[in-house]
Design a protein around this nucleic acid. Structure first.
Length: 804
RNA sequence: GCCGGGAUGGCGGAACAGGUAGACGCGUUGGUCUCAAAAACCAAUGGCCAUUUGGCCGUGGGGGUUCGAUUCCCCCUCCCGGCACCA
């Protein structure tokens, strides 16, 4: 008889809600475990089956850890600011708050239907006024620490969207949304000085248990380079151009210099006869979109300024050029060009007929252009004969003693562009007065969004808030306007930078979180989410956390101890699920037909959690069948089935049960849910062959199932005569001795080829195993007439005879 | 181009720490039940050869180390993710 998943699942979900089964508070007597999901942006489309994949995994871990005696914090909330609700508002006039609420209600319903063990009393929403208050408060902590500043910076201006975009919203020079061209235009912006934390963010990676790939991604993003700042005096000027180079050893080969077109010295260095071409080049460069600067423009362009610098190594006169392959935003915005050792410089030198000097010896058969490998220094004065590493060190030392430069470290990481010209975000709590900008007092927070009628951007690059005079203008008692509110809002990342801290103390109105609670729960022990957040969210959140740590607000340096990225679930056609492809699987339909337990089980059974894998409803049916098989063996319509008896289990059942306890426990600890489920199936297949299923065996087995398929497990648990939820039952212990096989199969190989299998008792000694093997008829035939030159015995595994 | 990850039956995937490749599930085939079908249950299922015992081949391709390689080393191909003139 099939079990009634609808009845059982709604029954237990109601039970958990009513008794607040998963509510948690600090408990010093228990070890804590904080298991966190990346909270969702509640979109209008609702969940597809890929979204809850990570939630299922964390839920299994949460439930498992509770049974292992941990005090488990497992919360859920909503990252609810964001562009879609605002765009919907622009189109329909619906307040984003309304849209957001509706979407959250739908998401909550869908998430709840899967039976997750969240402590719903801790639910948070980044758009709630109390939450916004503390987001703004943290911003002000950054501001007061000098980490938030305003600057005229070239931003990604998208004329089509009439909006400034963040770097991460620009892909290949086009807007991530819509694919419109994006240009660099200077505008006043709020920036966060994440670059001050480059070293801290880099070294912190060594402390955390994260996927290797994510650490590498962050390391590359931070982009630390060691090298030297080298000063080049300019001919007929007392100005000095400082360049950053990772190859100070090649200084003797620097045959020209290049400045970024935006470099502040350019105008001054331009000679009269070069003025026209420099001006023209600068203008062209500034008009270029990122797309044109990047991919489309592989051939080098540039113009000579007319001025010369002195190579500090050999006092050679070298020309100063400008070219847009040098970026103002990295290093000093100027480079020394060493075409012999750098392919970009080689290309440029070839294009403009500049001299090329090799400073690293190449082999006779080297047929490349610039040589970037290791070798002996040549044409390099006092460096000649040294390998690259040594030559770098000697050159840096020389520069430092001569006062011509010094060792330096640079990062690719840029400061974080923190302002958005939008309505639906946290207002930046700053007022601009004539002579200065001032933050709001803590008591004035939260600064809430005003009601507005039109959500369109102002079109000038300012946010819609700029049009709300009564909100923007700060007046004195006499009604004079004395100040203007900042109209930029924060990016969506802001709310997600600290939500994991708010979960710890979600209702606190006096503080963002209680210190004692924070030190009890932090750090997050396990954080699961999509790999698309490998850099931005995880880097920004770490940045804030490092700052909060330096300010003494949090007790750990790193927020997320262990991180894991779940893979994508693809459509049945093996392609990414999307509405346009029509291959989206809706969890509502799946839960309705097969139940939440089947869906949970299948998603975990599909394969390793971190891999992308295609959905297959037939496969899901297999999991559903498994639950039904078990159910119909152990349950009848009104209680336990007649197979369940008080008998003692037989040896084989005991052995398999203990193997199963061991396997499932180890697999859950290592997030290998697919193989844990495979073991459940093996055990169930065994139970089905039994005439009598001992009640004690079923009790133990149901506990193993509970984290995976909690509804049906609760139901069976109740059938077994328990009044309490299975949630806090203790996880079964296994006995290694009982799990051990007493009869084992040994493979017998001759010259590495399998020729026979023998069954022997597990404690048979080596010499006996060998003699039994030799006595085997099949093996005899292979050994006959041959000389055994080697006998290999791998305990409990195989025997290999090497014969000649 | 650079960095990271991957490639195992018809499909999703297993395989301790170098030790019987293909667990578990799907699919397929045959059977039971049925008037029939579905569901359920039982059995078989990597390929090739062989009437059976059995033999040979087989973890993207090529080499190597080893008694023994999906696993370690070298070279190559393809796929996925990220970065991309970062000096």
């Amino acid at each position: 008889m099939n079990y009634n998943h609808k009845k059982i699942e709604s029954k237990w979900q109601a039970f958990w809600d009513e008794y607040k089964t998963f509510k948690v508070t600090e408990d010093e007597h228990k070890p804590k475990y904080y298991v966190l999901d990346m909270f969702p942006y509640p979109s209008g489309a609702g969940l597809h089956v890929g979204h809850p994949l990570g939630y299922i995994a964390t839920d299994i871990v949460a439930r498992y850890k509770r049974m292992k005696g941990f005090n488990v914090l497992h919360p859920m909330g909503w990252d609810a600011f964001g562009l879609p609700a605002e765009q919907y508002a622009i189109k329909t006039g619906t307040h984003p708050q309304e849209t957001t609420k509706k979407n959250i209600d739908n998401f909550r319903r869908q998430i709840k239907m899967l039976g997750f063990s969240y402590d719903w009393d801790r639910e948070i929403n980044t758009t709630d006024a109390v939450y916004v208050k503390w987001t703004q408060w943290i911003f002000l902590q950054l501001y007061k620490k000098g980490l938030a500043y305003e600057a005229e910076v070239p931003v990604n201006w998208c004329p089509e969207l009439k909006a400034v975009l963040a770097n991460e919203e620009v892909v290949d020079g086009k807007s991530d949304i819509g694919g419109h061209p994006v240009y660099r235009v200077p505008m006043r912006q709020w920036m966060l000085k994440i670059t001050d934390y480059a070293e801290s963010l880099l070294s912190g990676l060594d402390e955390v248990d994260w996927p290797h790939s994510v650490k590498e991604l962050q390391r590359n993003w931070i982009g630390r380079s060691e090298g030297a700042d080298v000063d080049f005096p300019i001919e007929n000027s007392d100005k000095i151009i400082t360049v950053f180079t990772t190859r100070p050893d090649t200084l003797f080969g620097a045959t020209y210099m290049v400045l970024a077109p935006e470099h502040p010295f350019v105008d001054e260095l331009t000679t009269v006869d070069q003025k026209e071409s420099v001006k023209e080049y600068k203008e062209t460069a500034s008009r270029k979109s990122d797309l044109e600067r990047g991919e489309l423009n592989k051939e080098k362009t540039g113009v000579f300024t007319g001025s010369y610098a002195m190579n500090p190594a050999n006092d050679e006169k070298i020309p100063i050029w400008i070219a847009d392959y040098v970026l103002m935003s990295y290093g000093t915005g100027a480079i020394m060009a060493v075409p012999g050792q750098d392919q970009r410089d080689w290309d440029f030198a070839t294009e403009f007929d500049l001299p090329i000097i090799r400073t690293v010896e190449i082999t006779d058969d080297y047929d490349g252009e610039a040589f970037t490998g290791d070798g002996l220094a040549i044409n390099s004065g006092f460096l000649n004969g040294l390998y690259v590493d040594d030559a770098k060190k000697i050159m840096i030392k020389w520069l430092e003693t001569e006062g011509k430069g010094k060792g330096a470290i640079r990062y690719k990481l840029r400061d974080w562009l923190f302002s958005r010209q939008r309505y639906w975000g946290e207002p930046i709590p700053i007022i601009h007065y004539d002579d200065e900008s001032k933050p709001l007092e803590d008591s004035e927070l939260p600064l809430e969004l005003p009601e507005i009628e039109k959500y369109e951007p102002s079109g000038t690059g300012e946010s819609p808030l700029a049009n709300i005079k009564e909100w923007v203008e700060i007046k004195n008692d006499g009604g004079e306007v004395i100040g203007l509110r900042e109209t930029n809002t924060m990016p969506q990342w802001a709310g997600s930078c600290w939500y994991y801290l708010r979960y710890i103390d979600p209702a606190n109105i006096d503080h963002p979180w209680d210190k004692d609670k924070e030190s009890y729960w932090m750090p997050v022990d396990l954080y699961i989410g999509g790999a698309e957040h490998a850099v931005l969210h995880l880097l920004y959140a770490r940045f804030w956390h490092h700052v909060l740590h330096d300010l003494g607000f949090v007790s750990t340096r790193e927020p997320f101890q262990k991180l894991f990225n779940q893979g994508m679930i693809l459509g049945e056609d093996g392609l990414k699920m999307s509405k346009s492809r029509g291959n989206v699987i809706n969890p509502d339909a799946i839960v309705n037909e097969f139940g939440a337990d089947s869906m949970r089980l299948y998603e975990m059974f599909m394969g390793p959690l971190d891999k992308a894998k295609p959905w297959n409803t037939k496969g899901l049916q297999g999991c559903s069948r498994f639950i039904n098989k078990l159910w119909s063996k152990v349950c009848s319509s009104d209680g336990l089935s007649s197979y369940i008896t008080e008998d003692a289990p037989n040896d084989e059942t005991v052995k398999l049960l203990h193997q199963t306890i061991k396997k499932i426990g180890e697999d859950v600890e290592n997030l290998r849910f697919n193989t844990a489920i495979s073991q459940m199936m093996i055990f169930t297949n065994h139970l089905i062959t039994l005439d009598h299923v001992p009640k004690s065996v079923l009790e133990t087995f149901v506990k193993l199932l509970a984290p995976f398929i909690p509804h049906v497990s609760e139901e069976i648990w109740e059938y077994l005569g328990h009044n309490e939820s299975i949630t806090y039952e203790s996880w079964p212990e296994f006995d290694e001795a009982l799990a051990k096989e007493d009869l084992i199969t040994i493979a017998i190989q001759v010259n590495g080829k399998l020729r026979a299998n023998i069954e022997i008792s597990a404690d048979t000694e080596k010499k006996d195993v060998l003699s039994i093997a030799k006595d085997n008829d099949r093996i005899k035939a292979y050994l006959d007439g041959n000389e055994i030159i080697k006998e290999i015995y791998v305990e409990g595994r195989l025997v290999n005879f090497v014969v000649k």
